[in-house]
Amino acid sequence: MKEKQGEGNIIVETVARVMIPFIQLFGLYVITHGAGGPGGGFQGGVVFASAFILYVIAFNLTDGGARFPESGNIILSSLGLYIYAGIGLLAIFFTLGAAQYLNYGFIPFTSHFEENRALGMDFVEIGIGITVMAIIVSIFFDLALKDGDGKEEEEEGSR
């Protein structure tokens, strides 16, 4: 929340520096274990985006914005959508036109039907997670950053 880089609270910065890798690891765990338990691409993407939001809040808005620019947001959000739609269209292609969109089992990743289904589900979850992460971070930057700069972000709340 401070304006300069060296002026931040050391407790907040240290806790953020320790916690961010674990939050990201937990987000990846939620994405990859979403098929067999609670969680999934959406929740994992939100948890992963929370790590970026924590980084932006703890250190500096402009620094975080510089590390995750708007063009990267656009590329990542469309990449996740292309992964989702591409897996679905591959399923149509490998079911030989039987129009079974996202029927993962027919995509020949391996030789077993069930492994194909699990792998296809994981790829689709990864696509959902990438898109949700990019969009949540993008929404947060659109709400928190001003158009030109990010200098005066938190200090004008008292009217």
Partner: peptide, 23 residues
């Protein structure tokens, strides 16, 4: 899990950011 991740995490950050831009 979705409520904890989205409601308590992301939405709070969004609303605090919105308040920082308004009154």
């Amino acid at each position: 899990f979705t409520e904890a991740a989205v409601g308590a995490g992301a939405t709070t950050a969004f609303l605090v950011a919105t308040i920082s831009r308004t009154v």
